[in-house]
Every structure is written in structure tokens, then in C-alpha cells.
């Protein structure tokens, strides 16, 4: 949204923006209230969502956060929290490009560096369901593309 706005203001610098170019603003506007309320719900339910994901992951594999003798559940939780917040912001601003370029592509290399691909795969399968539970039927579709992008990059 921000990038589209900037692009529009740049391109329309020497001329007026056409009616079609103003469409995206109208489209964004039509769902903006839902975006804000979805964002606020995720913000307020952050702990609940994270707990639920953690429970489900442990149910699938009790030792999922262990590597050798080390327990990494705190680190994993911190990272999941980070992903959730950035995903919510990307939904709010309707800016998936920034999420991909500014976070996901980098984070994928970190997951690979620590050989955490399997945990990531399960995590980003479970996360969308946990998020959907706190959202209304109208809000969930706004979060869906963000979750799909996250899953495709981090959980492939």
C-alpha cells in the first residue's frame, strides 16, 4: 500500500492520476477497517496464538524444540512472535513485497543455517489456523495471502 502510494505519487507527478490508478486506493479503503480490526485482534491475542501453536507442535512431536541436550523453545517462540507481528503489519499495510524482501528471504537463510527446516515446515502449517481462530470470517481472508507467502518461503 505504502509502495503503491509512493509509486502513484511519483508517476502522477507530471500528470493527473487516472481513475484506474486510483482504484487501488478505493480497494484498500473498502477493507481498511477490517485490516485494522484484524491487526488489533492479532495484537491482543498474540500470546494465545503463540501458546496454541506451541501446544500443537509439541503434540506432534514432544522433542520438537530440542537439539541434543539443548532446549530451544524460548528462541523458537521469540522467532514465531517476530514472524507473527511482521505478518500482521504486512496485512495491515497490504504490503507483501516488504515482508518478503525485508524479512522472509533473509529469515529463510537463517532457518537453513540452523537446519531448522522441518520445524519451520510444521510451524507455518499450524500458524495460519491459530491466527484464523481469532479472526472473523471477513478478516481471515485478509491474512490469508500473508500466511500463504510466509508458508511458501519459510515452510517449503
Amino acid at each position: 500500500m505504502l509502495r503503491q502510494l509512493e509509486k502513484l505519487s511519483l508517476e502522477a507527478d507530471g500528470r493527473y492520476a487516472s481513475t484506474e490508478e486510483l482504484e487501488f486506493l478505493k480497494n484498500y479503503l473498502a477493507a481498511a477497517e477490517q485490516r485494522i480490526s484484524a491487526y488489533e485482534k492479532i495484537r491482543d491475542a498474540e500470546e494465545k496464538i503463540l501458546n496454541q501453536v506451541e501446544q500443537q507442535l509439541r503434540a506432534k512431536s514432544p522433542y520438537i524444540f530440542r537439539k541434543g541436550n539443548q532446549d530451544y523453545s524460548a528462541v523458537c517462540r521469540r522467532d514465531r512472535k517476530h514472524v507473527l507481528r511482521l505478518a500482521a503489519a504486512a496485512m495491515l499495510f497490504a504490503d507483501l513485497d516488504a515482508l518478503r524482501d525485508g524479512f522472509l528471504l533473509w529469515y529463510r537463510t537463517i532457518i537453513k543455517a540452523f537446519k531448522d527446516e522441518k520445524v519451520a515446515q510444521v510451524t507455518y502449517q499450524v500458524l495460519p489456523q491459530a491466527v484464523n481462530q481469532v479472526l472473523s470470517g471477513e478478516e481471515a481472508p485478509l491474512m490469508q495471502p500473508v500466511m500463504a507467502l510466509t508458508q511458501s518461503i519459510l515452510g517449503e
Binding site: 511482521l86 516488504a98 524482501d101 525485508g102 524479512f103 533473509w106
Partner: peptide, 8 residues
């Protein structure tokens, strides 16, 4: 730590 997009 995630600051590697060109604009960031």
C-alpha cells in the same frame, strides 16, 4: 536483524 531489503 532483518534489514536486508534494499530500502531498509
Amino acid at each position: 536483524t532483518n534489514h536486508y531489503s534494499l530500502r531498509d
